[in-house]
Design a protein around this nucleic acid. Structure first.
Lengths: 195, 195
DNA sequence: CGCATTACGAGACGGAGTGTCTCGATAGTC
DNA sequence: GACTATCGAGACACTCCGTCTCGTAATGCG
C-alpha cells in the first residue's frame, strides 16, 4: 500500500473519469452490456489504465458504487403520527421504485458482480442499502421514543427484516404488494392496538 | 406447442443429460465459469442440440432449477414446544448453510442469470425458495393453532420477512448472526411474554 | 422396404469481448 | 537533464457464444 515516489503519479482525474463513465454506462445501457472498451473510450482513457488499477470490469463498477457514483433511489421515510402508516408507505414506494425499469436489473447485476469477492460484496451492499437501513432505523427509534414501539425490541433487526423483504421481492420480481402491510403489522407486534 | 409428428423425435434422455450436466457444473465450477461447450461435452451432446431447445445458456440452467436438478439445501423447521426457539434455530442453521462454500455463489449467480427474464425469475425463485417458505409457513400456522402466535397476523408475510432476511445476509455476505434472534423476537410480537 | 423428415453428435466458423502487450508521449523526482 | 512510472491508443491472442454445416440415426408414411 506504499505509494511509489518515482515516475509520473497516478492521475486522479482519470480515475474519476473512469468511475464516472462506468456509472453512466450502467444507467444508460445496463450492466450486462458494458464493455471495458466502452468505459475506456467514454472516459477518454486507455484500457491498460483500467487494468492497471482494477482486476476486472466488475471491480470497476463495484468501486463506482462504493465511492458513491451509483446510488439506489431512496424514498424518504415519512414522519407522520403513525409509525405503522409510515412504514407501510415506505415499503410500498420502495418496492415500486425497485421494480422500475432501471433499478431492478442494476441491483440484480451488481449482486452477481460482487459474488466473486466476499469483502467487495459486503462493502457494496453496505453502500447500496446502508442509507435505506439508516433511514428506517431512525424512524423506528423515533417510534420507540414516542412509545409506538416497545423499547425492548431490536429496531436494527426490524430494519433488516423490512429491507430483506424488499430485496426478496426485487430478486423474485414478484411485485405483489398484498403481503407488505402484513409484514409491518407482524413486525410492529401482533398485539398492537386494533387500527 | 404442437409436437412434430414427422421425423426423429426429441430424445428425452439427451434433454435429461443436458440439464443434469448443467446442474453438475454449477455445483463444481460455479455458474460464471460454465460454457455451453462444457455442458454439451459433459452431456455427450452437440451444441446445436442445446441451442435447438434453449435460447441461451442461462435458460438451460434456469430450467435445471425449475425442474428440480438444483435445490437449495434446506433445514427442517423443528417442532418443539416453543415456536420462538424453533424459528431461531431454523434461522441460524439456514444462514449457516447458505454461507457455505457452494450455496452462496450459486444463489448469487442464479439471481443474476434470472435478471434477464422476469417470468423466468419468478419461476426460478419460486422453485428455489418455495420449499423453505412452505416449511416456515407450516410451522407458523401450527403455532397459530397452538396459540403461540396471534391468528390475526399474516403468517405468509412473516415467512417472507424471515426468508428475506436470510437472502439479504446471503447477498451481503454478512454472516453476523447477532440480529437473527432479534428478528424472530420482533416478528413474533414485541409484547410477547418476557423470556 | 424406400423415402421424407426431423433430431442427433461433432466440430468449423464469424463475431464480440477480455485482458495483455507494445508504442511514443508525459509528468513527476533527483 | 536522467530516471521512472503513468498516460492514451490500439494491436494482439485468447476465450466464448451462437450459427452453420456435415454425415448419421430414428421415426412415420406409402
Amino acid at each position: 500500500m506504499v505509494e511509489a515516489k518515482l515516475g509520473r503519479p497516478r492521475s486522479e482525474a482519470t480515475r474519476h473519469a473512469i468511475l464516472r463513465a462506468a456509472a453512466g454506462l450502467v444507467d444508460e445501457i445496463g450492466y450486462a452490456n458494458i464493455t471495458t472498451t466502452a468505459i475506456a473510450t467514454r472516459a477518454g482513457a486507455g484500457k491498460q489504465t483500467i487494468y492497471r488499477w482494477w482486476r476486472a470490469k466488475s471491480s470497476v463498477i463495484a468501486d463506482a458504487v462504493v465511492e458513491g457514483y451509483l446510488r439506489l433511489p431512496s424514498a424518504d421515510v415519512a414522519v407522520t403520527g403513525s409509525l405503522e402508516d409510515d412504514l407501510k408507505a415506505w415499503l410500498h414506494v420502495t418496492v415500486q421504485v425497485m421494480n422500475d425499469a432501471a433499478t431492478g436489473p442494476m441491483v440484480r447485476a451488481l449482486a452477481a458482480a460482487a459474488s466473486d469477492d466476499a469483502a467487495q460484496a459486503t462493502a457494496l451492499w453496505d453502500h447500496l442499502t446502508g442509507p435505506l437501513h439508516r433511514d428506517l432505523l431512525n424512524r423506528l427509534e423515533r417510534g420507540q421514543h414516542a412509545g409506538q414501539l416497545s423499547a425492548a425490541v431490536d429496531s436494527a433487526a426490524i430494519a433488516d427484516a423490512l429491507l430483506g423483504t424488499v430485496l426478496f421481492r426485487l430478486l423474485a420480481q414478484a411485485p405483489n404488494p398484498a403481503r407488505l402491510d402484513g409484514i409491518v403489522d407482524a413486525v410492529l407486534g401482533a398485539s398492537r392496538p386494533a387500527g
